[in-house]
Design a protein around this nucleic acid. Structure first.
Length: 291
DNA sequence: GAGCCGTGGCT
DNA sequence: TAGCCAAGGCT
């Protein structure tokens, strides 16, 4: 589960951080990308170090992929780090180094989808925008549609209904943050705390006796023994070594040769690993054409 | 639209 | 302990 960005933003503001922190669009953008699949507790220290080191898009754009991948650490899904790096370069090239404040330009950046673009508009620029993360969608599904869970992917109907609730004025961003927080802390997936929910009285799911979801949620594939774990093991070696490593060192990182080669090839294809002369491998010293 | 993409905490 | 869970973007 993730906490709401607004909560962490307020916390950071209270600790006295200023430029390039949560209040800057860059700080919000970085935090939202990091929070896409990673709990706030793990993001926080990495985000702080990241913003200290690269306080502007231009600063990040000037870094090497190797630096970026190492700074990402163990947040997971390291392709996000490369996308953030590429987004920084695009912000420099297309927008003079200034984070754009319109949905279309944001969505055109690598790694910025519908949710993150809306979150940046709302939480960085304070304008009403839909940021339909899973928590918000769950609150609306329950309260408005009377269902236990939202559909598998965001539907036009969800957007329309959410827009009907979204305040059009300066309260829009606050409302978005409030619903997000409600979903993260109260209207949770497994154990909703309806007794403390401020909108329980109008909740259709509650009124109809908490009907179960029609379809079972898709089960998550095993991680142990997966290609993802193999990729993680290989990348961990490269992250933790100061420079290139031998092919032998890669071989020791994962026992199954077929799976190891497949994982290594995919890491190279993703631009996360660079094959070097004499059978060695390293983190990329310069951006790959793959992004 | 289904499947892929890490990691770590919780049970 | 092994399995479950979180969950946005991209292909």
């Amino acid at each position: 589960m993730r906490n709401s960005p607004s909560q962490t933003a307020e916390t950071r503001a209270q600790t006295g951080e200023t430029r390039a922190s949560a209040h800057s669009a860059w700080g919000v953008l970085v935090s939202e990308v990091m929070l896409q699949q990673t709990p706030v507790a793990r993001v926080e220290p990495v985000w702080r170090a990241w913003i200290d080191r690269w306080p502007t898009p231009a600063a990040l754009a000037a870094a090497s992929p190797a630096q970026v991948i190492r700074a990402w650490g163990r947040l997971g899904y390291p392709r996000r780090a490369l996308r953030l790096h590429a987004a920084a370069a695009a912000i420099v090239e297309r927008h003079g180094g200034v984070v754009p404040d319109d949905i279309e330009s944001l969505r055109a950046l690598p790694g910025i989808g519908e949710y993150t673009a809306g979150a940046v508009i709302a939480f960085a620029f304070g304008r009403p925008a839909l940021a339909l993360d899973t928590n918000v969608r769950r609150v609306l599904a329950r309260h408005d549609a009377g269902r236990a869970r939202p559909p598998g992917s965001v539907t036009a109907g969800e957007r329309e209904r959410a827009l009907e609730f979204l305040p059009t004025g300066v309260d829009g961003a606050t409302w978005m943050a409030a619903i997000m927080e409600l979903g993260a802390l109260v209207c949770t997936a497994r154990s909703p705390r309806c007794e403390v929910c401020p909108i329980a009285a109008g909740c259709r799911w509650r009124a109809s006796g908490y009907p179960e979801a029609e379809k079972a949620a898709r089960r998550q594939p095993r991680y142990t023994g997966s290609d993802r774990q193999a990729r993680g093991a290989i990348l961990a070696i490269l992250r933790d070594c100061a420079g290139p490593v031998t092919g032998r060192r890669i071989e020791m990182s994962w026992p199954d040769a077929v799976q190891r080669d497949r994982a290594l090839d995919s890491l190279v294809a993703d631009g996360l690993v660079e094959p070097l002369p004499r059978g060695r491998y390293g983190l990329p010293a310069s951006a790959s054409p793959h992004g």
